[in-house]
Computed example of a mutant assay.
Amino acid sequence: MQTGSHKHAVLVTAADLAPQALDMLTQFDVIFAGKQPTEDDVVALCAAHKPVAIIVRYGKVNARMMDAAENLQVISKHGSGIDVIDQAAAAERGIAVRAAVGANAAAVAEHAWALILACAKSVPQLDARMREGHWDKSTHKSIELEGRTLGLVGLGAIGRRVAAIGVSFGMNVVAFDPYAKEAPAGVKLVSLDELYGESDIVSLHCPLTAENRQMLNRDTLARLKRGAILVNTARGGLIDEEALAGALASGQLRSAGLDSFGVEPMATPHPFQQIPNVILSPHIGGVSDAAYVNMGKGAAGNVLAVLEENARNAV
């Protein structure tokens, strides 16, 4: 990994990385791109430092960046969502793409439940009303979750954690996942149409692909139970945001909790900012104290594994 006194570079598309991850990368010059690096910033750093690896925390990695980093061997995601990496371009150039799968599963599952509960119990709205001097005890009714149906789209590491909590709440839990061979205890595998029709709460836990982009649109939102809750801690591209705004305004959906958006950072002004029954957070579901360390170590470990394998194969 090192030639003489020269250290190869690893570029991180962020301003920091967990100390535990940096400890794994001491044989490299670790270059930080800053808090919100632009495409031009990353291209310039790739051209200047010729990194052998890029650890992707923020933003996207495209062919232009890859071509500027002529020594690049691996692009390692600080998390599980590799849709921000041009995988076809990487494959054409023989560059490995890796994800820190499961490193933030607990954090995202917890945040999904924070949004589910906030939607069902109107937590932000009641807090705002209290601060305005109102006491809505005689008029407010929250949604009780016991006996309701929770529908999970995706049953990977995150979806399974969300499912287990739903089962512990006494909910009927159904899931759609074309890759799941079996379901955990208390969870029933169903078709996507069945899930839409049966669920009081729909929570998304699947990767974004060309096939499922805007899977929740005017047609599918209309097939949900009237008054259902929608939560998305996966990828914003799974939802047609204009159609969702309409479903929230019409009462087709009781509320939505969103942690990811079609364009990030979310454009301002945005229609969602004026919709009282949507709860928003800035894609921080996977950003916890423990996940920060786990994702950093996972990303660094993937870098080391690919570079070591390539070095062995070159001998």
Score class of each variant (00 low, 15 high):
Gly4Cys: 00
Lys7Asp: 03
Val10Lys: 03
Leu11Asn: 08
Leu11Thr: 14
Val12Asp: 00
Val12Met: 07
Ala14Gly: 06
Leu17Arg: 07
Leu17Met: 15
Ala18His: 15
Met24Leu: 15
Thr26Cys: 02
Phe28Glu: 04
Asp29Thr: 13
Asp29Trp: 03
Val30Arg: 11
Gly34Trp: 06
Lys35Thr: 15
Gln36Phe: 13
Thr38Tyr: 05
Glu39Leu: 12
Asp40Gly: 08
Asp41Pro: 03
Asp41Val: 00
Asp41Gly: 02
Asp41Ser: 06
Val42Cys: 10
Val43Ile: 15
Ala44Ile: 00
Ala48Asp: 12
His49Ile: 01
Lys50Trp: 00
Ile54Ser: 01
Ile54Glu: 00
Val61Gly: 09
Ala63Asp: 15
Met66Trp: 00
Glu70Gly: 04
Asn71Met: 03
Ile82Gly: 07
Asp83Trp: 02
Val84Gly: 05
Ile85Arg: 04
Ala88Gln: 13
Ala89Asp: 10
Ala91Thr: 08
Ala91Arg: 15
Glu92Tyr: 05
Val97Trp: 04
Ala99Tyr: 08
Val101Ile: 12
Val101Asn: 12
Val108Thr: 14
Ala109His: 05
Ala112Pro: 05
Leu117Gly: 09
Leu117Asn: 10
Cys119Asp: 11
Ser122Asp: 14
Gln125Lys: 00
His134Gln: 13
Trp135Gly: 00
Trp135Ile: 12
Lys137Asp: 03
Thr139Trp: 00
His140Trp: 06
Lys141Tyr: 02
Lys141Phe: 01
Glu144Met: 10
Leu145Arg: 12
Glu146Val: 14
Arg148Asn: 06
Leu155Asn: 07
Gly156Met: 09
Ala157Cys: 07
Ala164Met: 10
Met171Ala: 04
Ala175Asp: 10
Asp177Leu: 06
Ala180Phe: 14
Lys181Asn: 11
Ala183Asn: 09
Pro184Asn: 11
Ala185Pro: 02
Ala185Tyr: 07
Gly186Asn: 06
Asp193Val: 09
Glu194Thr: 15
Leu195Val: 15
Glu198Gly: 01
Ile201Lys: 11
Ile201Asp: 08
Thr209Trp: 00
Glu211Asp: 11
Leu216Ala: 04
Asn217Cys: 12
Asp219Cys: 03
Arg223Leu: 07
Leu224Asp: 08
Lys225Glu: 05
Arg226Cys: 13
Ala234Val: 05
Gly237Lys: 08
Glu241Ile: 05
Glu241Asp: 09
Glu242Ala: 13
Glu242Lys: 11
Gly246Leu: 12
Ala247Cys: 09
Ser250Phe: 06
Gln252Ala: 11
Ser255Arg: 04
Val263Ala: 12
Val263Asp: 07
Glu264Gly: 10
Pro265Asn: 07
Pro265Ser: 06
Met266Cys: 05
Met266Gln: 13
Ala267Phe: 01
Thr268Asp: 05
Thr268His: 07
Gln273Leu: 13
Pro276Ser: 08
Gly285Asp: 07
Gly286Asp: 07
Asp289Pro: 01
Asp289Tyr: 06
Asn294Ala: 15
Gly296Phe: 09
Gly301Gln: 05
Val303Gln: 01
Ala305Cys: 02
Leu307Ala: 13
Leu307Thr: 03
